[in-house]
Design a protein around this nucleic acid. Sequence first.
DNA 1: AATAAAATAGTGCTTTTACACTATTTTTCT
DNA 2: AGAAAAATAGTGTAAAAGCACTATTTTATT
Lengths: 211, 211
Amino acid sequence: MTIKIAITDDHPIVANGLKKILDDFANIDVVAVYTTGNDMLKEVGASLPDVMLLDMNLPDLEGPDLARQLLKKFPSIKIIVLTSSDVTVQVKKMLQIGCQGYLLKDSDDKTIVQAIETVYGGGQFLSPVIQQQLVNDMFRTKNQKQNTLLTRREKEVLQLITQEYTNQEIADKLFISLHTVDNHRSSLLQKLDAKNTAGLVKKAIENGLVE
Amino acid sequence: MTIKIAITDDHPIVANGLKKILDDFANIDVVAVYTTGNDMLKEVGASLPDVMLLDMNLPDLEGPDLARQLLKKFPSIKIIVLTSSDVTVQVKKMLQIGCQGYLLKDSDDKTIVQAIETVYGGGQFLSPVIQQQLVNDMFRTKNQKQNTLLTRREKEVLQLITQEYTNQEIADKLFISLHTVDNHRSSLLQKLDAKNTAGLVKKAIENGLVE
DNA sequence: AATAAAATAGTGCTTTTACACTATTTTTCT
DNA sequence: AGAAAAATAGTGTAAAAGCACTATTTTATT
């Protein structure tokens, strides 16, 4: 019995490279390769893979959104998130949505195959580094609770901050009061553990919230 | 006659994927795959490739440094820089050092092979997007001239700004007056065409002035 | 339908940035 | 040695950010 795999990644080198690697394994069959999130959503019905290797940073759709939509359409597909970022916030969100695996792009062939087989068998698979980080995170967040997850509005405000807008300009743009923006800004400083605007922008870029 | 290729990339998926892709071409022979800059420098003498596909963001050594060292040891090796960033400053630096090609990781198989063949034949190859950007850049810098060049002190101040220090803290750290820091900050805003701290940090990161 | 989380808006205050200037000293380059 | 660029320091003012609160309304989630 072969496992049907689909790959979604906007970097052809990664996508094709992965396909070539997996082609060497007899029990794995790469049935489709997509380079955009929208293509994937449109055409995945035709290939119906068992496991989807999904890049989190696609240009057209945000990772979490895409995963949610895919699972809504085809709840039986197992998703392994492929990414180069090991930010625990991102990881947690994807797992909450219902992804079964989280692989860093610096994993080697064997690990990838192992992840695919584990997930196909109903298990969950995390890159060791990530697993360790999540555990560490548990200890830390025990006290501070859920301060890491940014809300929709906070993300919007953060985005605009990185685009050099002032609080007043952000308020005008979002049709809210200056005070509200200030509040969001304070939450952001706290949640991202930043001291000032400079810290916010750095964290925003680190967490992939900018372009 | 076959072209001898070596690959240096810390992401096994990319490295192995590339190898698999290139293995399909009869005139190309992948003679070595390295996952760290130091490994590569140590062992490249054994494989002696014609063309090196070099990731710019290796964890152990900075891209420019690594390229410089490689060319010093083996001036005949052609380097094609592989990266996901298309920041023109970075591109210019690598080309100045003497790299013959600059490929974005979202290039497809044919482009990669084309780049290898061109570079092996003594030519230069840039991803089309980058080529366009460099041309645009020329026009812009024609008028504004050397506003991109930051002075030693400005770079220091910018670095500290990204580390979330206030002007007063920077002044204390550098043993200069608050006013002086303020002046440097103003120059930075002007030179980097930024509106505020957020812009400064973004530009600093874009231009590789922050780890 | 009830509860929790998020978004909204406010007050009052302090600190920090930003901007427009002038001016002197130190470095760097030719 | 002389000119240009960089680094230094200052005054004064306005705008923006940051902080500590309270409080109401809206949106999700169960």
